[in-house]
Design a protein around this nucleic acid. Structure first.
Length: 433
DNA sequence: TCTGGGGTCCTAGGACCC
DNA sequence: TCTGGGGTCCTAGGACCC
């Protein structure tokens, strides 16, 4: 058996890089991409990081800084990012028979067996190919476990001397330990802010400290997750590559409103719209939901205003993927948790107790004919909406404005770029000089 | 005026049962 | 002196990730 070697390939500032792909003049300029409602920063270019802007910083607090330094902001354009991501992932798939797509901008590749090619040369080849074929900058980290691959990627990103590729498996032990000693423990995958603070009281502050910590004591104080992290840091691969994404166990759709919403009548269309989106995802993975949870809340950032959070899980008579039944359940739940007089900021729905459609339980009260009709109807809706745009045919309760939201609940997206690769009327145009 | 959205896993504690 | 013990299931909440 060859020594295991896992690579983590991660796109640099992915959303920003996607915007730059079609607007090359953004290269070298400070660029951010904002969350829904243009609320906070979710991606920063190197130039913006250098200004000290933190991930998640509210955009309205940065207006002055942005003016001073000419920061250019975009609303998030998920249609574009998802399409670019698919292209990147399909190119990366050619570099190994085993790929796990971990997030929109990251994947693991199993490189065990490619040692004869020199992992770091292979990493450079991957990097150059993505740059040339797609146009995006990526970094590559290689290690004996996923956690080490993540950490190697961190080094590849932070330290210019590695030229975007860091292979822990071929570094001398002393060099690797020197690197780990310089990395804060919070940079280790699975170690968040809470754990950092608790580890500090034990004198564990660097990645190297954690690697050397006694596993049993870690387990006793922090649980099995962190014990596993310690093992992974020591080169013992505990996490396997998940080549096939398992079906989701819950499906959530929620949004903040552009401005506070008070009336039940204004919440209802949003709920119908979110259940509709969630049900589409449910059918895409061929699952049925056994219950629907609904939640509403006021803004936690306005402590002076009256606060209220309500949530309720509504069981369904039988598991279903029929949007109409799911909407009925969610609306019934909304009626029960709604309290008048509050300034609602967010509403969401969650589909729970998901089971594969193939395991639909049989009951005495089944009506196979009705169920077959419902199934045909849902499939027809999905195929029309796939072809003609996602809100082409919808339930009346979803309303008629924008993304199916009432006028009051409309989302702010003032700085969105074009869907250069997926909509013919927005396609990128190249002009010859 | 303006602070995202969507997931996973683990643990503790209560209810219930024998 | 001494409240039984142990298993399972469920839920809420915490922590983490991108």
């Amino acid at each position: 058996m060859p020594e295991p070697a896992i690579a983590l390939i991660d796109c640099n500032n992915f959303y920003v890089s996607c915007e730059r792909l079609f607007q090359p003049w953004l290269e070298g300029r400070p660029v951010v991409v904002l969350s829904n409602n243009d609320g906070c920063v979710v991606a920063r270019s190197q130039e913006v990081r250098a200004l000290g802007v933190k991930m998640g910083a509210p955009w309205f607090q940065l207006k002055d800084l942005a003016r001073q330094h000419g920061i250019i902001a975009f609303s998030s354009n998920y249609t574009l990012y998802a399409d670019i991501s698919n292209r990147v992932m399909s190119v990366l798939a050619d570099f190994s028979p085993q790929q796990e797509i971990y997030s929109i901008d990251e994947c693991f590749l199993d490189l065990s067996g490619f040692k004869h090619l020199q992992y770091s040369d292979y990493g450079q080849h991957i990097r150059a190919t993505i740059k040339q074929w797609i146009g995006l900058p990526v970094c590559v980290g290689i290690g004996a476990s996923k956690t080490l691959a993540k950490l190697a990627n961190h080094v590849a990103k932070k330290r210019a001397e590695y030229a975007g590729v860091c292979d822990f498996t071929s570094l001398p032990m002393a060099v690797r330990e020197r690197l780990l000693a310089q990395i804060e423990v919070g940079a280790v995958w699975g170690v968040g802010a809470r754990t950092v603070a608790r580890l500090a009281t034990l004198g564990i502050v660097s990645a190297l400290d954690l690697q050397r910590a006694p596993p049993k004591a870690i387990r006793a104080q922090f649980g099995v997750m962190l014990e596993r992290t310690v093992a992974e840091l020591n080169g013992e691969a505990c996490l396997t590559l998940e080549m096939i994404a398992p079906p989701r166990q819950q499906i959530m759709v929620s949004r903040s409103f552009g401005a506070a919403v008070y009336a039940l009548e204004a919440l209802q269309p949003a709920v119908t719209a979110y259940v509709t989106r969630a049900a589409e995802k449910l059918r895409r993975q061929s699952s049925l939901a056994g219950s629907v949870q609904i939640f509403i809340r006021t803004s936690p950032f306005k402590p002076d205003a009256a606060q209220y959070q309500g949530s309720l899980t509504v069981p369904l008579v039988a598991p279903t993927d029929d949007t109409r039944q799911l909407v009925c359940a969610a609306q019934a739940g909304l009626q029960r948790i709604y309290r008048p007089g509050f300034a609602y900021q967010k509403v969401g729905v969650v589909l729970l107790e998901l089971i594969p459609e193939a395991q639909r339980p049989r009951t005495l009260f089944d009506d196979p004919a009705a169920q077959a009709r419902a199934s045909v109807l849902m499939r027809t809706l999905d195929s029309i909406n796939t072809k003609m745009g996602s809100h082409c045919v919808r339930l009346l309760g979803e309303g008629s404005v924008g993304e199916g939201r009432g006028e009051s609940g409309r989302m702010r997206r003032e700085r969105v770029s074009q869907r250069y690769t997926t909509h013919l009327d927005e396609i990128a145009i190249v002009r010859a000089q």
